[in-house]
Amino acid sequence: MKPSRFIYHAPTQIEEVLDLLWEYGDEAKILAGGQSLMPMLNFRLLAPAHLIDINRVKALNQYSLSDSGLTISALARHRDLELSPEVELAYPILHEGLTNIAHVQIRNRGTICGSLAHADSAAELPSIMMALDGQMNVRSKSSRRIVPAGEFFRFHLTSDLDSTELLESVFIPSMKRNSVGAFDEVTRRKGDFALVGAAVVGTWSERGTIEDCRIVCSGVAPTPLRLLEAEELVSGTDLSEEVLVAVQQLVMESLEPTEDVHTSAQYRKKVTGVVVRRGLARLAEQRSVVNV
């Protein structure tokens, strides 16, 4: 469990990072928090010839909250965001997701952007980012582009980034008035990747119905999975017990989840419906809080 030989680069400017990516492309990997990359290097699942350590790039080590939303740069650690009262107030679901990521020691090092670029569908952040309609600010030496979260996750451990691109930051638009969210997952141990998980977001209308509902599941497919049919079923309803039972049934019947060493497809099929229902039930509970 020692990595293969690599050349180590420690740039201090974003431009240097982009130059290195431009030059080495496929042969390079970005090292941010290292919480997924280092084990993969040690297992020799990855053997990049060049490692670009961005920890000295000060410009990437920040996050900012404005009226329009939250921008999280490449080096911001899970723990930075988790401990921010402003972030917790503005995005309770993000805070909840962050507290479910691994353990404190890992959250101290791990980065939001690193986790998203790693694109593990069983992780917390990809599904939450999709539920919040986040945007990925992707940059290379030659171009900048914005990728909606819904188009960013391509396959298991595969994102939309090409080999010259850096996920420079992510942007999460501010939540609308009376928007609520909930994150629920089932893990073997505290801090594990999800066997199944669900991030649900919706907005309570003045009529007392839930609108613009987004339901995104983690751990059930090669990418976070948005359940459009379920969203349609619940949107415009009051999330009554009957609706919750119906959506659980729908998810259980329609889902064709993956099987792996952690659990069976049948388990995922059954329990995804449960976590979706529980997440939506918590949106229902929050109805009184948002003064509808």
Binding site: P39, R188, R189, K190, G191, D192, V261, H262
Partner: peptide, 28 residues
């Protein structure tokens, strides 16, 4: 509740890291 070293039917080990082998921690 947690620990299980799994193998495929022909003897391939499937749990060769703590990601896949659920050793309990103080939390459990």
């Amino acid at each position: 509740i947690y620990e299980e070293a799994k193998y495929s039917k022909d003897g391939q080990p499937l749990t060769v890291s703590y990601l896949d082998y659920a050793l309990p921690t103080a939390m459990e």
